[in-house]
Design a protein around this nucleic acid. Sequence first.
DNA 1: TTGTAGGCGTTATCAA
DNA 2: TTGATAACGCCTACAA
Lengths: 349, 349
Amino acid sequence: MMQRRKARLVDVAKDAGVSPATVSRAMARPELLSVETLQRVHQSARRLGYRPDGMARALASGRTMTVGAIVPTLDSTIFALVLQAMQSTLTREGYQLLVASHEMNPAAETEAIRTLLARGVDGLMLVGADRAKEAAALLRTSGVPVVLTWCGNAEFAAVTVDNERAGELAAQHLIDLGHRHIGMVVGHLPFNDRQSGRLAGARRALRRAGLELPDGLVSQQGLTLAGGRSGCAALLDLATRPTAIIGGIDLFAIGCIQEAQSRGVIVPEGLSVVGVDNIDMSAHMIPPLTTVHIPTSQIGQTAAMTIIAQITGEVTRQHVDLPIELVVRRSAAALTGPLQKHHGSSTRP
Amino acid sequence: MMQRRKARLVDVAKDAGVSPATVSRAMARPELLSVETLQRVHQSARRLGYRPDGMARALASGRTMTVGAIVPTLDSTIFALVLQAMQSTLTREGYQLLVASHEMNPAAETEAIRTLLARGVDGLMLVGADRAKEAAALLRTSGVPVVLTWCGNAEFAAVTVDNERAGELAAQHLIDLGHRHIGMVVGHLPFNDRQSGRLAGARRALRRAGLELPDGLVSQQGLTLAGGRSGCAALLDLATRPTAIIGGIDLFAIGCIQEAQSRGVIVPEGLSVVGVDNIDMSAHMIPPLTTVHIPTSQIGQTAAMTIIAQITGEVTRQHVDLPIELVVRRSAAALTGPLQKHHGSSTRP
DNA sequence: TTGTAGGCGTTATCAA
DNA sequence: TTGATAACGCCTACAA
């Protein structure tokens, strides 16, 4: 019995003695058919091993049941986690995830947007609000639902987090501990509004306390552990080195702890470190990392739900801002020793 | 100037005064056209803002320029890295990456395969060779190029790594250092041939040395840092605790180091630890982790290239096995102290 | 080198 | 509740 390469809709229709339209309905909206025909169709379908063709379905319906996600890089705990969360939420609703990364290159991101749009994604998730003008134009004219994450703007739906406040919380914590000379390791600022925001927030807190965070105390690094280490190294090699360092991401903060320890500098006694993200590793560091918790999985989950809501027309341009909070652990401590004396430690026994 | 919602092939053809076929060729095989017509077509295309419709193209050509990848989870340095490598290789060749994860659930993997196949992926990357019978049948009959990673079998193309040897290298290193009582933290064994292989390899090395790795010294854990810690905790709480622990993945080994340190056990003096993977974090641990290097990115890159080669019909069922090697750092040391005395330490001054 | 025309497998709009 | 039939937008022999 040499059957046709692949059973099609018409084959099932013929076999079941109904019209193609009926078979189509049987698959998509079974409630419109009589129980009897429905059964007959299902039987034929099963017997012929029928599998609807996604491409044909996409062409005819205009929907691909696919959502695109373009992240800076897949090689990052943060983005991997957000994609994982999106993926599981989307799967539950019958959607698939198409991923692309741009490695911090705006042109590559624009190209990825163009490609995914051409592939007919039903929705698109992007990181941040800072991108090429052309990219924004593409999105606008395409009309596909878009959701921005971490940072947003008025033009699109967004699932955000207050990055400035994150930087502020980290800095304020150190200020409260008596630190007056604080450094920061951040990612490369251009085309990264998340890192820019965190830096701005830290500066705000310092300024409010009458302090400052000069460029000399800010080290821009690639978003890797090695970046964190070399950022820390640069700061510790300064003539008057900071007593505390903020990592723009936890990975930086962890790198700082490691660099300090490998130099024999004890954390937090010799150097306080605070991060932003609260990745899994942070809680397990020795000492455990004090950090600002960013609800990464929730961003992914909410982004997925927001996109689906837009696709199904339930809402448009929804904005949701997720709460963040400082998680105090043991990598930052009150300033002690010589420096502290200038700030009143002598007034306490 | 209210133009049609979306420029189509025929619109460009009309505008350029050529046939649709010519426009199609201009996009896909420009070398077949005269320079003159080619320019005219490109001009019209640009002016109308023409973007080929991926779905229509897929339906007509039978190709989607999309490769699927189904991994256990996205939330893992390892799989994120492999996907990143695949993604960049595929992008370079004009393909996109469709990802899915199954969270260690065979049924979910089967479902993902079914879905991606229905979506018309041109190729499929899978992790390991251990899966539901039904899944294998789906793959076989679908006829789409498949590439297995880490572990392979004779039925499909594969990019592998010798997991048994990895376990063997780790164990042998500890044996060479004088350890006689070795424990291991591994992932849940069912449906995970990578972990099973590493455990089997470790056992092989021990057996060869006249030692053994009883089930009581093997702790199965979820593939997280916390898993590594609790696995280590379980092993350290044993009546006669091991002097060394092998982590089935680096994350476990790192968790072991952290758990040991948090109990005041010095690594490597009080406990030697060896991992398998060589993730980024490992080199930065204090002490840096001795581990077996698995060329993760290369697996991804090679898998992508293997799939493309199969799609373009260059080869079939290619098998490539990537080399691995022990990276000696400082988390494992020669056995000293009381236990060592039974094995001849007293013969040296 | 270019044009003609018949699919590709569904969905969706009307009728019946 | 079901059926006919025209899209959907492009590809690709085959013909010219």
